[in-house]
Amino acid sequence: MTRVDQWVWAVRLYRTRSIASSAIKAGHVRLNGDRAKPASPVKVGDEVRVRAEGYEKVFEVVELLSKRVGAPIAAQAYVDRSPPPPPKDEFFGAFGDRDRGAGRPTKRERRELDRLRGQ
C-alpha cells in the first residue's frame, strides 16, 4: 500500500508532495468518496477524486507508485474517469475581454462590463 499524498504526487497530479499534502488536508482530494488524510492508504482499484480548476477529476488506481516517475509511466498508473470539463461560456468571454493596448477601462465602461457580467 502507498500513502495517498505519495501517490497523487508520483502520478503528477501535483507538482510537489507538500502541495499534494496541503490539498488533501484542505479537502480537495477524496478517496473512495470519503475525505482523505495525507497518510490514507491507497490500493489498486480505489477511486481518487481531485478537485481542481472548478471541477472534479476522477481517477481509478491501476498501479501503486511511491516514487515520482516520468509522465508516460505515470499515465499508465491510473485510468481517468473524469467527466468532460464544462463548456466555456462563449457569451461571457466575448464581453469580458478587452483589446490589447486599449488601456484601463473608464468608469462608464467598467459599469457596463459589470452590468453585462451580472454583478
Rank of each mutant, 00 (worst) to 15 (best):
I19V: 11
I19P: 03
A20M: 10
S22R: 03
A23H: 12
A23Q: 09
I24R: 00
I24V: 09
I24D: 12
I24T: 14
A26V: 07
V29I: 08
R30D: 11
L31F: 05
N32C: 03
D34S: 12
R35W: 08
R35Q: 11
A36S: 02
K37E: 12
P38A: 00
P38T: 06
P38N: 01
A39I: 02
S40W: 01
S40C: 01
P41H: 01
P41T: 08
K43Y: 06
V44M: 00
G45T: 09
E47G: 03
V48G: 00
A52C: 06
E53K: 11
E53F: 03
E53H: 12
G54D: 14
G54H: 10
G54N: 06
Y55N: 02
E56N: 04
E56I: 14
K57M: 09
K57H: 15
K57W: 15
V58R: 03
V58W: 00
V62L: 13
V62D: 13
L65E: 13
S66H: 14
S66L: 04
K67T: 15
R68G: 14
R68E: 14
V69R: 00
A71Y: 14
A75M: 00
Q76F: 03
D80N: 15
R81L: 13
R81W: 08
S82D: 08
S82E: 09
P83D: 13
P85H: 03
P86C: 05
P86N: 05
P86K: 00
K88Y: 13
D89P: 04
D89T: 07
E90P: 05
F91Q: 07
F92E: 10
F92W: 06
G93I: 11
G93D: 09
